[in-house]
Computed example of a mutant assay.
Amino acid sequence: MSTKSLADFDFEAGEVLLLDKPLTWTSFDVVRKVKNALRIRKIGHAGTLDPLATGLLILCTGKKTKQIDQIQAQEKEYTGTFRLGETTPSFDLETAVDLVRPYAHLTTEQLTAAVGQLTGTIQQTPPLFSAVKIEGQRAYEIARQGLAAEIKAKTVEIKAFELTRIALPEVDFRIVCSKGTYIRSLARDLGEALGCGAHLTQLVRTRIGEFRVADAFSLAAIEALRPPRPEGAAPRPERSRPAPNRAGLQYYAARQADTLAAPHQQDPRPDPMAPPPGPGDQ
């Protein structure tokens, strides 16, 4: 945790605030929550995290918003899990599995070779389920209408790509990459290189430049700083945590509901739809 107390921050003048983003929240959800809780007039985030990713989200307030471009241009580090042998249209758990292929024949040598193909400077095509703009419209808006669109490949740098656990069909990873890299696209590309398909089931952003999730604050800590309302003012109705389907996660939410409705059912395989623990729980 940061050695600087939240109580010492001057958000109106300008601060760089490290937050540990909760699962299913959009980056915009977090910005709005912090802005409303602390009544900050000027605030933005330096680098979007997908709703099904957790970890480091950097907020800049006041005059420090001028540093947003500089911060989000720095290299990123991620850890997480790919599931081999299954693909989804979104390359993660937002959408249902659409193809199943054999994976049990894969060897450590084959996995290592495929990772090597995806290390260094590569051409990567972002997912259709992403915030990339296509003729003025966000790609995910097109995707959620069931429509197709062409997204151009771009150059990214994968500075480090290592598998930290191999337990087929799952593999854990650590990736250090340049700005603009989509880890979901790396899941797709790894699956294609192995000939079995793959998708992302867990993602934690652990670092942006020298900023680390280990130094990040929780949203609960931010909420604790909420200023008292003026005397005599009627309290605002408290809003509940954003529902997953606000982020287009209807499939994910439905699977979670099914899991909660049948807790007595035991599946011998790890459930890829189970929510990954937040970085603070790992």
Rank of each mutant, 00 (worst) to 15 (best):
L99R: 15
R39I: 00
T181W: 00
T54Q: 11
Q124F: 02
L99T: 11
A257E: 11
V213Y: 01
F217Q: 09
P127D: 12
V171D: 05
R165Y: 04
L203Y: 07
A143N: 10
T107G: 06
I142C: 08
I122N: 07
T164H: 09
L52N: 04
V213R: 01
A148S: 13
L128T: 11
L128S: 12
A139H: 12
S130F: 03
L163V: 15
E109G: 08
Q124C: 07
S178Y: 11
E86S: 08
H105N: 12
G55P: 12
I151P: 00
Y182F: 11
R32F: 06
R229Q: 13
A148D: 09
L52E: 04
R205D: 01
T95Q: 12
K152N: 07
K66I: 06
T87V: 05
Y182L: 09
I208A: 06
P230D: 11
R269W: 03
P89H: 03
Y251I: 10
E15S: 15
V171M: 07
V213E: 07
T108A: 15
L106C: 10
P237V: 09
S130D: 07
L18T: 03
L147F: 08
S178M: 03
L163I: 15
P268Q: 05
P242R: 13
T164Y: 01
R174N: 10
L111Q: 12
E210I: 10
L59T: 01
G191F: 03
L163C: 11
I222H: 04
R205K: 00
P22K: 15
K66G: 05
A167F: 08
L23R: 13
A193Y: 07
R101F: 00
A37S: 14
E162M: 06
L194C: 10
A262V: 07
V97W: 02
D10H: 13
A224N: 06
A153C: 05
T88Q: 08
R239C: 02
S5Y: 08
G44M: 08
L186H: 06
E210L: 11
T61S: 10
A198L: 07
G136E: 13
R207Q: 11
K76H: 06
L56P: 04
E109I: 06
E75D: 14
M273E: 13
R212D: 13
A261D: 14
K4Q: 14
I68K: 02
G278V: 02
G85Y: 10
T61R: 14
S178T: 07
D172V: 04
A113L: 11
K64R: 15
T88E: 05
Q282W: 15
A53Y: 02
T61V: 01
Q124S: 09
T121G: 03
T107A: 10
L106G: 08
D8S: 15
T112C: 04
T26L: 07
L194Q: 07
D98P: 03
R255E: 12
I222D: 03
